[in-house]
Design a protein around this nucleic acid. Sequence first.
DNA 1: ACAATAAATGCACTTCTGTTGCATGATTCC
DNA 2: GGAATCATGCAACAGAAGTGCATTTATTGT
Lengths: 138, 138
Amino acid sequence: MIQADKFMEDKGVRPTAMRLLVFRFLAESKTAKTLSDIENAFAKADRTTLYRTLKTFEDKAIVHQIDDGTGMTKYALCEEGCNCAIEQDLHLHFHCNNCKETVCLTAHKIPHINLPDGYVAEDANLVLKGICDKCSGQ
Amino acid sequence: MIQADKFMEDKGVRPTAMRLLVFRFLAESKTAKTLSDIENAFAKADRTTLYRTLKTFEDKAIVHQIDDGTGMTKYALCEEGCNCAIEQDLHLHFHCNNCKETVCLTAHKIPHINLPDGYVAEDANLVLKGICDKCSGQ
DNA sequence: ACAATAAATGCACTTCTGTTGCATGATTCC
DNA sequence: GGAATCATGCAACAGAAGTGCATTTATTGT
């Protein structure tokens, strides 16, 4: 992992203490996290600050939002080379019905779909649900 | 369209006045509707009643929920032969960024995805976003 | 270094959707 | 007709998302 503060400055985000903590928390997470997850991870954190921190991160293509159908938006770090900034990085997400965690499957892109005449796709969201590798005992 | 009340009785749902209205409203809709949409369509309707009506419809496989990423769950009638009751009917949904409407593309099934070892898919949700046929002027 | 400016943070509050409890009204069954 | 069951409506709550504003912290220019 590169230096977090240098990385953030390169992205045009001031590396404050809180932001570095959030960044590192997400970096160490293997799964996508909700705002509440992050809030609970730091006892003294204010929800609004975290909310705006994540929004800033999103604007600067440091994290991307994930809507896995649980009703709570989750956040995950963009991978090296994730081009969320320019266009949507159309990898799919997997939500485990057992451990309730959601992971990015960055290697798996959403396949192209032939739409009826007149429909123009600009974005896509594919969420698979089932049992993840850890829960399937493999 | 078959008789709505007979259809509902076959499904095991008592065809009350409100339910028939909701059913007909959804039947006449080309797009998926939110609870608020339905609420606004009938001035004197109570939100709770509509909420439970939709829940009942869902249990009896008359409608299915759609999560198009807008944050509001939408509802659409199940098609003839839609097997939501037995298993998920994995058709995809299209959300228009222009008119904000969401439609079922029942003819388009979600393609099979090869997952990494240990992952077992049980369900899937694919939402494409862009411009619909009406808004693209075709 | 110091003032002026800009950015980040924290608190309070609002809004909106989804949801449940409970009392009342309508329907079915015997 | 009366009991039981189901549907409805009102009120209230929960949780997440979002906004406004004041305060603190950092940056800039001189």
